[in-house]
Design a protein around this nucleic acid. Structure first.
Lengths: 160, 160
DNA sequence: GTCGCTGCAAAGTCTTTGCAGAGAG
DNA sequence: CTCTCTGCAAAGACTTTGCAGCGAC
C-alpha cells in the first residue's frame, strides 16, 4: 500500500466521519461550527489518546486564530461521547482520555512508565468474554480491557 | 461448609491482613491508629467496591465516635494503594472505587443500569493476555478487564 | 431574524495540603 | 518525649454552568 493510497483512504474515512457528525447535528437541531469541526479533525488526525487539556492545547497551537475555549472542548467531547462518536478511557491516575469511537473495536496496553498506549484486538478473548457474560446472566453491551506493563523503549532506558 | 467455618476463615483471613498492615506500617516508621484499622476493617467487611465518600459515610455510621475526617480516608487509601494492599478501579463516570488487593486476582463485570459489580476469573483470558503483551514487547505487570452489560435483576425490571 | 454556540469567568466537584493540637510508640 | 496522625479548613485540579454577545441557518 503506497503513501498515496493511505492518504486517500484517510481522506475518505475522515469525510465519512465529518458527514456523520453533520448529520448528527442536523438531526438534533444543533449547529455545525468551526470549533466543532476542528475538534473532530484533531481527534481524527492525532494518533494519541487525548485529554481535554491536551486537545485544547493542540487546537490553540494549530488554530490560534480561533481562540477556542476549554469549555467548548469539554462541551463538544460530551456531545460526541453521548452520540457514541468518541469513547472515553480512564486509566489510573492519568485522567480521562478520549478517542474516536468510529475506529474498529480494540483494547489497550498501557506503559506504566511513560503512559504510552498501544492498541490490540484478540478474537479469542472477545469470544471468551461473551461466554462469561452469558454464564453470569448478563446481557453484554461492551467491554474494555487494559494490560499494564513496561514498553520496549522504557525497558531499554531502565537497563542504562 | 458451615456458616461457622465461613466465620472462622474470614477471621483468619482478616487477621492476616491486619498483621500485614501493621508490619507495613512498622517497616515504614508509621503508626497504627484506630482510624487506619477501621478503614481496613470496612474495606474488608464490605462486599461492595467503595468510593472514598461511601467509605467515609460507612465509617461515620459504624463509628460515629471517631469522627473520622474524609482527608484521613483519602490519605489511608493512598497509603494502602501505594503498598498494593488495595487496588483502585475507575469505571466510566462512576468515579474511583477501591477494593482490597489481597483478594485473588479477578476481573469485573459491571451493570450499566444499577452499577452493580460482579467478579470473575478466566484462565484462558489470562493466558492470552500474557501472550499479547509478549508479542508487543511489553513486560507485563498487571491487567484489568471490564465487561459492561445489564444484570439479571435489571433485565427483569426492564421487561415489566 | 432566530436560536443555538462560544468565550469568559464564576461555581461546582473531588482530592490534596498546611497547620496546630492529639496520640502512638 | 518525640514525631507521626488527625480533623479542619483552605487550596488545588478538573469540569460544568450562567451569561451576554456572536454566528449558523
Amino acid at each position: 500500500m503506497s503513501a498515496n493510497t493511505d492518504f486517500t483512504e484517510r481522506t475518505v474515512e475522515y469525510n465519512k466521519l465529518l458527514s456523520d457528525f453533520k448529520q448528527l447535528l442536523r438531526d438534533n437541531g444543533l449547529k455545525f461550527t468551526i470549533q466543532r469541526e476542528v475538534i473532530l479533525e484533531m481527534l481524527y488526525s492525532s494518533d494519541e489518546h487525548l485529554t481535554p487539556e491536551s486537545l485544547h492545547h493542540l487546537i490553540q497551537e494549530k488554530h490560534p486564530d480561533l481562540n477556542t475555549g476549554i469549555a467548548t472542548v469539554y462541551r463538544t467531547l460530551s456531545l460526541l461521547e453521548d452520540s457514541d462518536m468518541v469513547t472515553s478511557l480512564s486509566f489510573g491516575a492519568q485522567g480521562k482520555k478520549y478517542e474516536l469511537g468510529a475506529k474498529d473495536h480494540h483494547d489497550h496496553i498501557i506503559c506504566t512508565q511513560c503512559g504510552a498506549i498501544s492498541e490490540f484486538v484478540d478474537d479469542e478473548i472477545e469470544t471468551r468474554q461473551k461466554k462469561i457474560a452469558e454464564e453470569l446472566g448478563f446481557l453484554i453491551q461492551e467491554h474494555s480491557m487494559q494490560i499494564y506493563g513496561i514498553c520496549l523503549p522504557c525497558q531499554r532506558k531502565m537497563k542504562k
